[in-house]
Simulated scan of single mutants.
Amino acid sequence: MATHRLNSMEVKRMNRNAIYRYLYHRESTSIQEIAQALNLSLPTVTQNLKELQEKELIVETGLFESTGGRKAKSLACNSVAGYALGLDVTRNHVGIVLIDLSGKVVKNVRNLFPFANEESYFQGVGRLVEDFVEECGIDRSKLLGAGIALPAILTGDRQSVSYATVIDFKGGHVQRFAEYIPYPCILSNDANAAGFTELWGEQDMHNVVYLSLNNSVGGSFIVDNQIYAGKNHRAGEFGHMTVVPEGRACYCGQKGCVDAYCSARILSDSTGGSIVEFFRLLGEGQEPQRTIWEEYRNYLVVTINNLRMLYDCDVILGGYAGAYMEDYLDSLRELAAAKNTFEPDGSYLRVCKYKLEATAVGAAMELVTDFIDSI
């Protein structure tokens, strides 16, 4: 079998990318540390660092303490060398975030803007994006693009929508947004984007199941830090697992789906649509919130246990409801452990670390990831 021999340009690019990634995961480091860690010569590291500095991708942050000789320069990634936009498109809202290359949220906003598969809607989204960028006051030439997350199943090339019931966009194409957003646009599934956010920057966790408890239930399965899409790009549709045969009607047309029992609406409908108010009243032990929560929790625990049995990895609760479950995590772990055939505790269960606009952030992070890959 013929093997591809790397040419000098490919080797140079691989070294440059390795050096940038090494810097990316550290607050600061020195030329000597990079050379030693990556087993590269000092001249090779020095030349690549010079190129990265010329592109303003790294900066000098000072000097390390002397160990007897000349003080080594302290180097770090320039997190404001680029920015990415993320949009979370839902049935009733458009959330927008701007992140820098480190993943830090620079600004975010959520607009009440009901989805409609009409020209005026996409024009309106374009205006919202442009107004938002103007308010951010950044150099537009540094914008990598806009990641657009949808509650929909995408085609393999992620250019269009193959299935959508939450929003009326089946068959819709990324160009519908790109026509009015003057930056490179990519589409993401909303739950996959949120799950991707949770693994960002994690060095010791590479496999995880993310359960998105929004007004519709979704999720993602991440293996070796990569979204597992499945043969038909429907992996992670946890909201349509059956938990009660012939149970409550689901919006998909089936009965007994997880969505019909674990949607955030089950909770927020008791407080006029406010999930914040639901958990405030629950914290006070108020009725009917306490009774609603106990029933909701029982179905949620069944779902969690099923996911643990299927994938044998950490399970993260996210979405509107998951973001407020920190105070109830211990009891959820106890109940999950009681159903577990193999384990005495539920320490595998976690609550999302991104409480605000996780979906929009994840959509933006995909652009940052692509940018880092290209260095």
Rank of each mutant, 00 (worst) to 15 (best):
A338F: 09
A323T: 10
A260I: 12
T242W: 02
A363T: 09
Y228L: 12
Y328F: 14
L367K: 15
P344M: 07
G362A: 04
D269W: 00
D269R: 13
E343Y: 05
Y354W: 02
V243P: 01
T242R: 05
V361G: 05
F342T: 12
E326W: 07
C252M: 07
I316Q: 09
V244Y: 00
P344K: 10
G230M: 08
D314G: 09
A229Y: 09
R248I: 06
L267T: 08
R248W: 01
C257Q: 02
A337V: 08
F238E: 05
F279A: 02
T341C: 07
L281C: 03
A363S: 15
C352R: 03
R350H: 11
Y296L: 10
L367R: 09
L267K: 03
S274K: 07
E357H: 15
Y324F: 15
A358Y: 04
N305E: 12
V301I: 14
Y299K: 13
L367W: 04
A260C: 07
G346Y: 02
M365R: 11
G285K: 15
A321L: 13
V368S: 08
V276T: 11
H233N: 13
A338G: 02
K231P: 00
A260Q: 05
V315Q: 07
I292G: 10
A337L: 10
L307T: 13
G285H: 11
A337R: 02
I275G: 01
N232P: 10
I292L: 08
L281H: 07
L281A: 01
G247F: 03
L332C: 07
A360P: 14
L332R: 06
K255M: 06
G318T: 13
A235V: 06
G322R: 06
Y251V: 15
K339G: 12
A260Y: 02
A229P: 00
K353G: 03
F279G: 01
G322S: 02
F279W: 04
Y348C: 06
E294V: 09
R308V: 07
S331W: 01
Y251T: 13
Q254R: 09
E294I: 08
S270P: 00
F279E: 01
V258P: 09
L310G: 14
M241S: 06
